Simulated assay, not measured.
Amino acid sequence: MSDQKDDLQAFLAEMKGVKPLKTKTRVVLNKHTGSEQSPGQQQRRRDAQTDKSVDQNGLSIDHLELVHPLDVIGYKRPGLAHGVFRRLKQGRYPVEARLDLHHQTVEQARRQVIRFIQDCLRYDARCAIILHGKGEKGDPPALLKSYTNRWLREIPEVLAFHSAQRHHGGVGAVYVLIKKSEAKKQENREKYRTQT
């Protein structure tokens, strides 16, 4: 007990003349105006206020569900005839346009896919192929393949897509079936009207 008393006396002797710091009872926050923020802070604020999940062309860039590099991917819109989808899967439609996404960043690939589908519509290419690669060595694996799988589902002009046959790239590529342009639809109407 005497050791504790001696320690307390020694402590009080050392603390003699020390005054406690004055503290404020309220925290004062400095409100920054836009002019006081650094350019980086201003950009982060703008980024936080905008929805980054969809770009101006409507293609998602967030919340990606990854597919395995060797997975077969495919999709068909409701109402598309089963026989049409089967022929697409079998690679029986002539490939009229080709896009290679190898060595592209996700952002570059997204822009390329948008432009490619628009070009296919403009030039009446109904069946196209997109080479996205398997992405077996990527980190994460199959990133471009996964994004291609998602983006093609989100483009209304894409009726269906399916992993290609081995001689066209197999699971590293997809066949894409694109809607007919209005001009092509009108041409078909006139063609079949004259035949009846």
Rank of each mutant, 00 (worst) to 15 (best):
2 S>V: 14
6 D>T: 08
10 A>E: 09
11 F>G: 05
19 K>H: 10
23 T>C: 11
24 K>H: 14
25 T>M: 14
27 V>C: 14
28 V>A: 11
37 Q>E: 14
40 G>W: 03
42 Q>D: 09
43 Q>C: 08
43 Q>M: 11
45 R>S: 13
48 A>M: 08
51 D>C: 05
52 K>S: 15
53 S>A: 08
55 D>G: 12
59 L>T: 01
61 I>Y: 03
61 I>E: 13
64 L>K: 00
66 L>T: 01
66 L>Y: 02
71 D>K: 01
72 V>R: 04
79 G>Q: 00
80 L>H: 00
81 A>M: 06
85 F>Y: 14
88 L>Y: 01
95 V>H: 01
102 H>M: 06
103 H>Y: 10
105 T>F: 07
106 V>K: 06
106 V>M: 12
115 R>M: 14
118 Q>F: 09
120 C>L: 08
123 Y>G: 09
126 R>H: 13
133 G>Y: 01
138 G>P: 04
138 G>M: 11
140 P>C: 04
142 A>C: 02
144 L>T: 01
149 N>V: 00
149 N>E: 13
155 I>M: 15
155 I>T: 05
157 E>I: 02
164 A>Y: 00
166 R>V: 15
168 H>L: 08
169 G>Y: 00
170 G>R: 00
170 G>H: 00
172 G>F: 02
173 A>N: 05
173 A>G: 06
173 A>F: 00
177 L>Q: 06
178 I>R: 00
180 K>E: 15
182 E>K: 08
183 A>M: 05
187 E>S: 07
188 N>G: 00
194 T>K: 13
